[in-house]
């Protein structure tokens, strides 16, 4: 795979980030996450074609877990809570998108500073990974409902995957698989979490969890 397509994938990842920041519909966010997972599964392919069965395995695993399994769990969780209509971020959508842009600029600035051997697309990859992590964090902070936090978390995990792909090069793929399963586990827990929050308050609004105190 040429670096042109490589950067195209990373650009699309960033666009999905912005898309999620911009949309208020949880179902759409979940679909965008599925798309993002599929995009991520393409990233290890160059190594796979270069003859690395591990990379092939990683790609398939990413596709399964991030592209299919987790979005499905998420979408089911969203549907089950009947809260799939709209998100209300603390910051407005315009402000979130612009903040996301600032994060991206900062990530490009910082991404260039990661001191590791660079291939042509490494700068982009590092920056996109960082931006994705930060965007995920921002979404987690910015959303009221538990579903929003889960979405933010999944984006954050995707960012970690990109960054680890950028850094690893020799990192045992076992660790990456471990990350994948870690995420899967987290998704399950979150699914249950949404469910329980929903049942307790019939309304997955985290700001209402203050009631839990005392």
């Amino acid at each position: 795979m040429m670096s042109g397509e490589y950067s195209a994938i990373l650009v699309l990842v960033v666009i999905t980030n912005f898309y999620i920041l911009n949309t208020s519909r949880y179902i759409i966010s979940a679909r965008a996450i599925a798309l993002q997972g599929c995009l991520l599964s393409l990233l290890p392919l160059p190594d796979a074609f270069a003859g690395s069965p591990q990379a092939m395995f990683l790609s398939a695993g990413t596709l399964m877990v991030k592209g299919i399994l987790m979005p499905v769990i998420l979408i089911r969780a969203i549907r089950s809570t009947d809260e799939f209509r709209v998100a209300q971020p603390f910051l407005g959508h315009v402000a979130s998108v612009l903040l996301g842009f600032v994060i991206l600029v900062a990530a490009f600035w910082a991404g260039a500073a990661i001191p590791l051997p660079t291939r042509p697309h490494d700068v982009l990859m590092g920056a996109v990974g960082l931006a994705t992590i930060l965007t995920g964090m921002m979404i987690m902070v910015n959303r009221r409902k538990a579903v929003g936090q889960v979405i933010g978390f999944l984006i954050l995990e995707n960012g970690i995957l990109i960054l680890s792909l950028r850094i690893s090069r020799g990192l045992p793929f076992v660790i990456e698989m471990a990350i994948l399963f870690d995420v899967l586990l987290a998704a399950m827990i979150f699914g249950g979490f949404i469910q329980s929050v929903h049942e307790t308050f019939s309304h997955t609004d985290v700001s209402r969890m203050r009631k839990l105190k005392g």
Partner: peptide
Amino acid sequence: IPQFLAFAFVLAGFGVIL
């Protein structure tokens, strides 16, 4: 609509960064 236009702005800005 401002949201939509902000999105366009961000895309164009991303292009500049690239």
